[in-house]
Write a protein that binds this DNA or RNA. Structure first.
Lengths: 155, 155
DNA sequence: TATTGTTATACTCTATAACTATA
DNA sequence: TATAGTTATAGAGTATAACAATA
């Protein structure tokens, strides 16, 4: 006989099923899979969109503050921003008050790009929580916000 | 005057704060940061540990089932398993019933390694949910389990 | 001295496709 | 034909350290 586990559903992950880090990792992979599925939006990737979106919400934001909030390291942020600059989406300005810093703003093109993607991004997001009921999804989001230290800010 | 956002706490992420995918990404990064902080365990990385752990829970598991459950692509799984084999942690067997498949088992060394890491991994996990109360953490875990399609299996 | 951002390097993880051997 | 796994390659993302300019 052969008792080997050959189907996903038979896999016993044991105590790992109660591990927050493990569940967050699986959850993120699932969310991204859903996002990139046949119905998901195209073009800008979630990470890229989030950077542009946060700049659009905070015109003139310092590169360091942006990176800290999105947990992107300085070295990587430099590359990302240069990419956006090359695409004409973001402009950099060095403030007189601190000439080490860089303040980021969207260009007109950048604002259009964000506007175009935002609608499909956020409406798609609503469908992402498939296995959960509406109230469950709301509570999951609330708990995650608390965990990562994010308060929902009014518009 | 200079109104630019220069502190993390001033950053307004707008509607992104309600995005499940975004929150899952931040949450995972936070959990990993915590894990790797000064108090976190050393040696085996969370991803590596999870692979070995699941093999230990499912002796003889097929490589494909393992990869599907942990959302690791076949090509990557091959590299991981070879690495573990080279370290003498995992042994591969080709079953007669299907000579395309590979069944994975921990070696004695592998079992010891998992045993050694498991205790510190899981006890550390308990401290990971810092910003949440015990009941909140429990519910967050329950919702995530439902979201990713994991049932807690009794020992 | 500390901070902001840049550069350079390397490593991990991921994505893809072509390949084998079995079924 | 389809499946399980392998190989090879390229691209993200990340980590690190050394560096310049400024504070």
């Amino acid at each position: 006989m052969d008792f080997s586990v050959r189907n996903v559903d038979q896999v016993d992950v044991g105590a790992l099923a109660g591990s927050l880090g493990f569940l967050l990792r699986l959850g993120q992979l699932k969310a991204f899979d859903d996002f990139y599925s046949e119905n998901g939006p195209r073009g800008l990737k979630p990470g890229e969109f989030s950077v542009l979106w946060v700049i659009s919400c905070n015109p003139g934001i310092r590169q360091s503050a942006l990176g800290q909030r999105l947990m992107i390291k300085r070295a990587h942020m430099t590359k990302l921003i240069r990419g956006f600059e090359d695409q004409g989406l973001v402009s950099r300005a060095i403030p007189d008050s601190d000439r080490r810093a860089v303040e980021l703003t969207l260009t007109a093109t950048g604002r259009e790009a964000v506007k175009a993607v935002a609608e499909t991004f956020f409406t798609y997001e609503e469908t992402t929580g498939a296995p959960l009921s509406k109230p469950e999804l709301r509570q999951l989001i609330a708990l995650l916000q608390k965990y990562v230290g994010l308060e929902e800010t009014g518009p």
